[in-house]
Design a binder for these strands. Sequence first.
DNA 1: CCAATTGTTGGACACTTGTCAAAGTTTAAA
DNA 2: TTTAAACTTTGACAAGTGTCCAACAATTGG
Lengths: 193, 193
Amino acid sequence: MKYDLTKKPTRGAQRTLAAFSTTMFELLAQKSFEQISVNEICQLSNFPRATFYNYFDDKYDLVNYCWYTLTQEIHLDDVQKITPEQAMTPKQALSIFFDRVYQLFTDHSQKLTEILKNNTLNGPMVVNFTDYVKLNMQEIIHNCLDLSMVPVPLELIADHYSNTVLLVLEWAFLRRENTTLADAHRYLEYLLK
Amino acid sequence: MKYDLTKKPTRGAQRTLAAFSTTMFELLAQKSFEQISVNEICQLSNFPRATFYNYFDDKYDLVNYCWYTLTQEIHLDDVQKITPEQAMTPKQALSIFFDRVYQLFTDHSQKLTEILKNNTLNGPMVVNFTDYVKLNMQEIIHNCLDLSMVPVPLELIADHYSNTVLLVLEWAFLRRENTTLADAHRYLEYLLK
DNA sequence: CCAATTGTTGGACACTTGTCAAAGTTTAAA
DNA sequence: TTTAAACTTTGACAAGTGTCCAACAATTGG
């Protein structure tokens, strides 16, 4: 990402960022990510290509920013803050985390299902999103897993747990539309052992 | 893939396929997959671009073929054939499968470590490889999992198991070079519950 | 309200990608 | 060894990518 998201953006920058990301969402509802070109995004957004490249490295970077704006809605940091005092097990913490993301998906379900009509989940489009979610989960796990008594490296477990949560999310929300939250929790319970 | 791998290739086709795939392996040892262009592959292979596109859709397709040639060495089909008679548990079958892939990695360790100097595992380069391995595992799991007594969809379990095997493989072989096979088996045992 | 800073624009650049058709070459089977 | 079928080559094509720069506009602090 060329643009620094830590500093607060000017009005113009906000307009530009918003324009590009809403155009991306519109295009994703129409065609696959691979078929979308930077030229097209710029035409529809009424910005020149040079401006696009002022903000983003490429279209992957933009879609990544799109997921970022979505995930800003769920406050993942909270899960970690609660942890130390209440001495949660990883399973409990991940369950809270799971519910947050599940809620996010529910809130944006029509947008997301439109996107999924034209896009598979395997492509590079969602890689950054899953990486982002995974990173958050791994921090949570590190914070509440007691490192004793486990015959397996901590990071390996963190990877395994976060893979599992992501799998159930994908399954429950994107591959089986009629999976209830209760079902999803049962699956998670079973798979996390 | 443009070229039909089921029919037996002509001498010329074999030469061409081999030239492109060895060039790809050479280039992967020098730079990252993203930095490699089809032009470059063709120059080093002494073939025109049009020939490349006679055989492959793009460079992803070629690297996919490269993994395919490697995996031809381990006979994954065997694992499945043994199954019905001996009534294996998924864990046992996956353990055999794991050993085969582990062996494959050991056989090609210097080639693979060279590639990993320049390439991360997260990129789209290995996605096709992992998908391929995953597909094989899912067949194995379907063949030897008794569908009763499990409160979770079969495909979900298949996904979860194959994710786990891949994670331990990646961990044991590519992220911790000094993990023994015994360690790896212990991790697998623990994570598969 | 006016300058100084900061951001935006348009066009040009060298480069890559994937496709095509016509000409040329190799192959396998008779 | 010949020949029809199959494959490879060539060069050109339209389109996309990411970078750069000089001209231009917008913002905000003084």
